[in-house]
């Protein structure tokens, strides 16, 4: 059985204004973190003996088109010893870029590759940021809201939408450092 429920103030106190409280939605506390500090925040959440969020459940990209800032990276963390969950949210501009947390949890590797593949969120410092689902050389990011559901029309896809693919070839094919 789960122990004490997570006290939101505990996390707010630990970071002293560096993160923003987004309230609780359906049992999970959510916090907004500035993208520059994501790695430090994650490291503290993982290593702090009072918190110990040692399990990264999920990293998820969101496209809020046409809002600005347009993109968002959502992290779901779980603490195996304390049985707590938190949600960390980072709003990102266009083109979206954020530091990779692969140094904190190795499991972030494929989650970040997926978010890159589907939304074009560039995770700096990722050891191997390649497309994961789509093939190499694919142009555009299919889960963005402005990408048509059936893709763009070409000789392999006669049912696709009219119009040229988005002009971001440099982003899609550029070598990742």
């Amino acid at each position: 059985m789960s122990g004490e429920p997570l006290d939101r103030a505990l996390i707010m106190k630990r970071f002293e204004g560096a993160i923003e409280d987004l309230g609780t939605a359906h049992g999970i506390h959510a916090f907004a973190v500035p993208p520059e500090t994501i790695v430090e925040v994650c490291r503290v959440l993982k290593d702090d003996p009072a918190l110990r969020f040692n399990f990264l459940s999920d990293i998820c990209g969101v496209d809020h088109h046409p809002e600005t800032p347009r993109f968002e990276a959502v992290y779901h963390l779980y603490s195996l010893p304390n049985k707590w969950r938190v949600r960390i949210k980072c709003r990102l501009g266009d083109p979206p870029e954020i530091s990779s947390v692969t140094g904190v949890w190795r499991t972030a590797n494929w989650h970040e590759r997926e978010a890159w593949d589907m939304y074009g969120i560039r995770f700096t410092g990722h050891p191997d940021l390649r497309r994961i689902y789509m093939w190499e050389g694919f142009e555009g990011f299919p889960q963005r809201k402005d990408f048509p559901l059936r893709g763009y029309k070409d000789k392999l896809n006669p049912f696709g939408a009219e119009g040229p693919p988005p002009t971001q070839p440099d982003l899609a094919t550029k070598e990742i450092p």
Partner: peptide, 20 residues
């Protein structure tokens, strides 16, 4: 309007749905 993350113990492990 809202967001939810809900996970269950599927045969393979934690199966979670994040819905916005």
């Amino acid at each position: 309007k809202g967001e939810v993350y809900s996970a269950i113990e599927a045969p393979k492990g934690e199966l979670g749905f994040y819905i916005l």
